[in-house]
Computed example of a mutant assay.
Amino acid sequence: MSYVHQQASVVTGPLEAKGQREGADSGDPQISSIAFDAPAEVRFGVWECEPGGWPIAERADTETCYIVSGRLIVTDGATGENYEVSAGDVIVQPKGWWGRWDVIETIRKVYTIAVPEVS
């Protein structure tokens, strides 16, 4: 496994436009991102999304996020509980999690996704 390092200027700098968030059912959540080179068992990068909302089906992987800027409401599908998430927060969406994201102010996050083992 190799060491991965990204400077703060990369985290806060320009990202590549990717279009509207797939599955969006409110607003016009345009996304941008940059992926970093990382070991095969993990995906790692910066992701940004403009206001809008979408449901999340049962996750096939586990994602951990550090929120750099912005604000969103995450609704846990199993409990119906709403969480206001903003800059400085860390969230984990485990494999199997489902719910909803509603971005209130453009959100930017640093993420890692544990790639499931293929058997």
Results as ranks from 00 to 15, higher is better:
Q20Y: 08
A38L: 05
V10W: 05
W47Q: 07
R59M: 12
W97Y: 14
S86V: 12
E105R: 13
L72K: 15
A8I: 14
L72S: 11
L72Q: 13
A114R: 12
S119M: 05
R21Y: 14
G77A: 06
S33D: 11
A87P: 01
V110E: 00
A38K: 07
R71S: 11
A57L: 13
G96R: 00
M1K: 08
A87Y: 04
G80M: 04
S9K: 14
T62L: 11
S86A: 12
I104Y: 07
T106P: 15
G88C: 07
V118H: 06
P94A: 03
P55K: 09
E117V: 09
G45N: 02
G99H: 01
I34P: 00
S119W: 02
A87N: 00
T75K: 10
P39G: 01
Q7H: 12
A78T: 04
Y66G: 00
E16K: 13
D25F: 14
P55V: 01
G96A: 00
A87I: 01
G80R: 07
Q93N: 14
V90Y: 12
I104C: 09
E16P: 00
C49E: 03
L15S: 12
I31N: 00
A24W: 13
D37E: 14
Y66H: 12
W47R: 09
A35G: 11
D89G: 04
G96D: 05
A17G: 13
W101P: 05
Q7V: 11
S2W: 14
G99S: 07
E50I: 05
Q93F: 13
Q93M: 15
E16Y: 11
P39V: 01
G99W: 04
